[in-house]
Design a protein around this nucleic acid. Structure first.
Lengths: 120, 120
DNA sequence: TATACGTATGAACAATTATTCATATGAAAA
DNA sequence: TTTTCATATGAATAATTGTTCATACGTATA
């Protein structure tokens, strides 16, 4: 918890030097911040969250996810691609069918973190 | 880790009953899923992430955040509103100045979760 | 090979969203 | 009260994004 204070410097045109140094040293690089935002963006869509919840229960093929969620195969496939790119899910092919499953338990942890924040 | 498997049922028009029941019983209500997605959406923007990183260091007034990030006061104020609505930050007024700070350490935990996922 | 089926994907459209601009609010000082 | 300064906010614009539609790809089977 940061209980430090600093007086506003809005009259000047420069922020206090010590704060400025601390902030700029702790702030990740621009590119990393974009990756970070993109990562969280993945969880910022109900369809993708629903897909993840479905995969909490069982590995599943695309058409079954689509049926369970009452959406088109195409829509699900597009979202699965995004989840795959973020390395939140993995897949294995079995003939014509592709089975998707959670990449690891990280996903559960992150979603639960969000859930517990909302339930406070 | 879910290591259960189920054969695809894409020929039929119905997903296996047991899976369907499990999924629908574990799936949160639609409204909650929207709140959850909206919550993660907040972290899905670099400006807001930057603001949170700045507040990791110190409580700060709007104009200083704007100066630190090289953005307009208006843009920052709009984003602070969103962060406030999500209860990620709090504020206190001191004369004309409004100081913003993190609501609790939850924010740090969530961001670090994202960071560690990216760094794997 | 030809057909069928499950999945992937590019383009287009509709909806959402971040920033800017102009202006309003709120508080202190003249 | 009037002015000044910090912050908030509504409307407009530009950019991003989710879904649909049409179609392509991959694999198995006839």
């Amino acid at each position: 918890m940061s209980d430090k204070k600093h007086s506003p410097v809005c009259e000047d045109n420069i922020v206090h030097e010590d704060i400025l140094q601390k902030v700029t040293s702790e702030m990740p690089e621009e590119e990393f911040l974009y990756e970070l935002a993109d990562f969280f963006k993945v969880f910022g869509d109900t369809t993708r969250i629903k897909i993840l919840y479905v995969l909490f229960e069982s590995e599943m093929c695309v058409c079954d996810i689509a049926k369970l969620l009452g959406m088109t195969q195409s829509a699900i496939s597009h979202q699965l691609k995004i989840l795959k790119q973020s390395k939140l899910i993995k897949y294995r092919r079995e003939g014509k069918t592709v089975f998707y499953s959670l990449a690891d338990d990280h996903v559960r942890t992150i979603i639960n973190q969000g859930v517990s924040h909302l339930c406070e």
